[in-house]
Simulated assay, not measured.
Amino acid sequence: MKPTGESVGAFIAAVTPERRRRDAETLTSLLQEIAGREPILWGTIIGFGSCHYRYPTGSEGDMPVLAFAPRKSASTIYLDSTDRHSDALAQLGPHTVGKGCLYIKDLEKVDLDVLRGILVRTLAWTEAGGDGYAAITLTG
């Protein structure tokens, strides 16, 4: 995965439906505040900061430190693991999960303080080098 260099603002302005665009604006502000980094477009993913990862298998690549994607059906927020956040997720409000993805259909229906805590812990995990990886090195 690589940054595209395209405008985050233009990308968000084109997001549909309107609710997803509104959520993208809110998530951009929230993740920028937590990460302390400017938003960068990685294809259709809005990322904050960057890191290089290497799995024990030898596979490696680059990814944002924190990221989300405004998809048509839900906002996808990328986490270290949803299992690590099960207690907080139980308090979050309406959502669904995958192994490392949190899907929110309407950000106004979730507890943003709980979401903030989940994102702060995900950032701390990544900045600490992430267990389960051979290495995570911050690059931006």
Rank of each mutant, 00 (worst) to 15 (best):
L138K: 10
C101E: 04
A69L: 04
T126E: 02
A88Y: 09
E25Y: 00
W42I: 10
F68D: 06
A90H: 01
D131S: 13
G129L: 11
G61D: 12
G129I: 11
Y53M: 07
T139G: 04
V8Q: 03
I104Q: 02
R22Y: 01
E127N: 09
L66K: 01
P64R: 04
D87E: 15
S7K: 11
T126Q: 11
T16Y: 02
G5M: 12
E25V: 05
I104W: 00
S29T: 14
A134I: 04
H95L: 07
L27M: 15
L102C: 06
F68I: 10
L66E: 05
W42M: 08
D80T: 15
G117D: 14
I12Q: 04
D83K: 13
W125P: 01
A67R: 04
R54W: 00
D113I: 09
A69S: 15
I45L: 14
T137W: 05
I46A: 05
L89W: 06
S50K: 04
K72I: 09
L89E: 10
I77L: 14
R19V: 14
R116E: 11
I136D: 01
R84D: 13
V15K: 02
T76L: 12
P3E: 14
A88F: 10
T28F: 03
D111G: 10
L27G: 05
A88S: 13
G100R: 11
A124R: 13
F68L: 12
T16Q: 14
I46K: 01
V120F: 00
P56K: 12
L107Q: 06
R121S: 15
W42E: 11
L107C: 06
R22Q: 14
G93P: 00
L102S: 03
P94Y: 07
T16S: 12
L66D: 00
E108W: 00
F68Y: 15
G129C: 10
S59H: 13
S29R: 15
W42A: 11
G140C: 04
L41G: 00
T126M: 11
W125M: 08
